[in-house]
Write a protein that binds this DNA or RNA. Structure first.
Length: 577
RNA sequence: GCGCUCGUAGCUCAACUGGAUAGAGUGUCUGACUACGGAUCAGAAGGUUGGGGGUUCGAAUCCUCUCGGGCGCGCCA
């Protein structure tokens, strides 16, 4: 039950009746709660959209529409306002019905069928297997996982996927770094880690493991002898680190796809052939970028993808100078492979530093899927770590990464997850270590949790007064609740399905945290009213019917908060310490 | 040099994707607790949405120019 959708379809019917049939026009009609509460419950721009086509003034057209709307039993008032908006006020019983429905559905309240029979793939995290996760990875991880939850709730069949970049120079350097540690331990001497190597101490246990198994077998051997073995062992070990980090955040991927396996299964050749057949690949030369100093740029022929056909500024190379594939080539193969798995939507969660990469991959997806697959890339801005009011620079060289584990260990996964969703993905986010670890009341998550815990404590109190849980669903008489704040609370409960839909459609999980803060705020307000006005308290021992109605309302609020928190991966608390 | 992206209250950010008088938190000031949990609530103050131009009934949102920050621009991934 989504009252906003119900009314919107009625409004579209009226539009049809008036002679508006064009799909393009109909799509421009909106029905939404106005920002200003006093305007009413739902506002539509139908008269503004239709006036030109029907050759009427917006106000005249609005009068006709209002006549139709007033025929509906649930509409108490319909007024034209401003340039031609129509504002609808609904009967209170509408909200009563919504709340009864919510009570009945419990934790299923808010589900919808947007994604019925649709498969969606969300690729997120995909941190390189060269070290444990640091705090900067957390945002994409939380964002992707929460979005996956929301899409599940909206009826999609969701696959959570992790792409392991286990091929190329980067993982060679990983193996070389482990080898250094291996020699260090065997010779008991400190070695120098050159620029491209990983100096982190987390590689020492891996080296020890190798020594335990092979002793000094590789200490005097040349690189080709040991590198593949070192690589395999190191990657496996580090992926275990990463999986542990993810699991501490409550995240579990369904599928881990290996770049290396794509290369060995010839997927790259396949996608290159397909693109070649579509005339999107050619041998050509690339100019060096202007205004940027590049040493040793030599113009040479290479295999290029015509990404400029898809809005990219230049065509992009598929091969390196030594003839091996670029990262783009294997990523093209990866996306080709995803397209073959019959998803209707592919979502990629990337760091903002990959922004320049979007167009070429979109080009590949469009080309191989004949534009049949929705493709959305969400770029998460980097997280600025702030300590004592100053930004902390993290660098691989200095090894001063703040590990995800250390933050989760101090603040817990719930606080971290909530904070990461208090910004929309494309805005940068300041993560103040001090604020988050030391003064917990600065965290908005506690504000919401507090509302949840208060409602839980109402249950306990009520059962002392002889009102058991079972009474909540026993057809509460919501018409006893007439205070503005009570009605507002019901309206917020009624809005919940709409919030989910919007979050799912726009791929914006942060809407959930904002909504939860709103509904918690209204709840706290009503609670405090009870301080000065005893008749507005939730529990009125002399009036059982009223108490049940009010507690039932509180229970719908709790239901919404509880499922909202769970959607973003936060555990609702029954008690705040 | 080119491309992408962001710019909103002192600070950190929202704004239902083109809607009406741009909203929260925090900070500052002033108030409300013998309470169903004060980790709460109320009030005050704070704005030319970086700037100019354009599109239309209507712009923080779209187009254009401009200023400023971030990211990226073959042989890292």
């Amino acid at each position: 039950m989504n009252i906003y959708n119900d009314l919107h379809s009625i409004i579209i019917q009226i539009a049809n009746k008036l002679g508006l049939k064009d799909r393009y026009i109909l799509d421009k009609i909106t029905s939404e709660p106005p920002k200003e509460k006093s305007y009413g419950d739902i506002s539509t721009n139908l008269a503004l959209i239709g006036s030109k086509i029907l050759n009427k003034t917006p106000h005249n057209l609005a009068d006709e529409i209002i006549k139709e709307l007033l025929k509906l039993k649930i509409v108490s008032k319909a007024l034209v306002a401003g340039p031609g908006f129509i504002n609808l006020h609904l009967e209170d019983k509408v909200w009563h019905e919504c709340c009864k429905y919510a009570l009945d559905k419990k934790s299923d309240y808010g589900k919808n069928e947007l994604g019925k029979n649709k498969k969606v793939n969300i690729e997120f995290v995909s941190a390189n297997p060269t070290g444990p996760m640091h705090i900067g990875h957390a945002r994409g991880a939380v964002y992707g996982d929460s979005l996956a939850n929301i899409l599940c709730f909206s009826g999609y069949e969701v696959t959570r996927e992790y792409y392991i970049n286990d091929s190329g120079e980067q993982v060679n350097n990983l193996a070389r770094s482990v080898y250094k540690r291996y020699l260090e331990i065997l010779t008991n001497k400190k070695l120098d880690f050159e620029n491209d190597l990983y100096p982190g101490e987390y590689l020492i246990p891996i080296a020890k493991k190798i020594i335990k198994k092979y002793d000094n077998k590789f200490s005097d051997k040349s690189e080709p002898v040991w590198i593949d073995r070192f690589k395999r062992i190191s990657i496996n070990h580090i992926m275990d680190y990463i999986k542990k980090d993810l699991s501490n955040l409550g995240i579990k991927h369904d599928i881990f796809i290996s770049e290396k396996s794509l290369i060995s299964s010839n997927s790259i050749d396949k996608v290159v052939n397909i693109l070649r057949n579509k005339n999107l690949i050619y041998e050509g030369e690339l100019e060096p970028p202007k205004g940027k100093k590049i040493n040793n740029w030599e113009i040479r022929k290479q295999l290029l993808f015509k990404s400029s056909h898809f809005g990219d500024d230049v065509d992009r190379p598929l091969t390196k100078s030594d003839g091996s594939w670029t990262y783009f080539a294997s990523d093209a193969a990866y996306h080709y492979e995803k397209c073959n798995r019959k998803f209707s939507t592919l979502i990629n969660i990337w760091g903002a530093d990959h922004g320049g990469y979007v167009k070429r991959i979109r080009g590949v997806v469009q080309a191989v899927s004949e534009s049949q697959i929705d493709f959305d890339v969400k770029l998460c801005q980097l997280v600025n770590i702030v300590k004592d009011g100053k930004p902390v620079k993290m660098s691989k060289r200095e090894g001063n990464f703040i590990s995800l584990k250390s933050v989760v260990d101090t603040v817990g996964p719930d606080v971290l997850r909530f904070i990461m969703l208090t910004r929309k993905n494309d805005a940068s986010l300041d993560f103040d270590i001090k604020k988050v670890t030391e003064s917990s009341n600065e965290n908005p998550v506690y504000y919401v949790q507090y509302a949840h815990a208060r409602i839980k404590s109402l249950h306990k109190k009520a059962s002392i007064e002889g009102i058991k849980d079972i009474d909540f669903v026993n057809d509460p008489n919501f018409s006893l609740l007439k205070n503005t704040s009570e009605i507002n609370l019901m309206k917020l409960v009624a809005t919940w399905p709409r919030v989910i839909e919007l979050a799912a459609k726009s791929h914006e999980p942060h809407r959930i945290t904002y909504f939860l803060t709103d509904i918690a705020s209204e709840f706290h307000y009503l609670w405090t009213l009870g301080n000065s006005r005893e008749e507005l308290r939730y529990i009125i021992p002399k009036d059982k019917e009223l108490t049940i109605a009010r507690l039932s309302l509180a229970e719908t609020v709790r239901t919404v908060i509880s499922s909202g928190l769970q959607l973003i991966g936060v555990k609702p608390l029954e008690v705040l310490k």
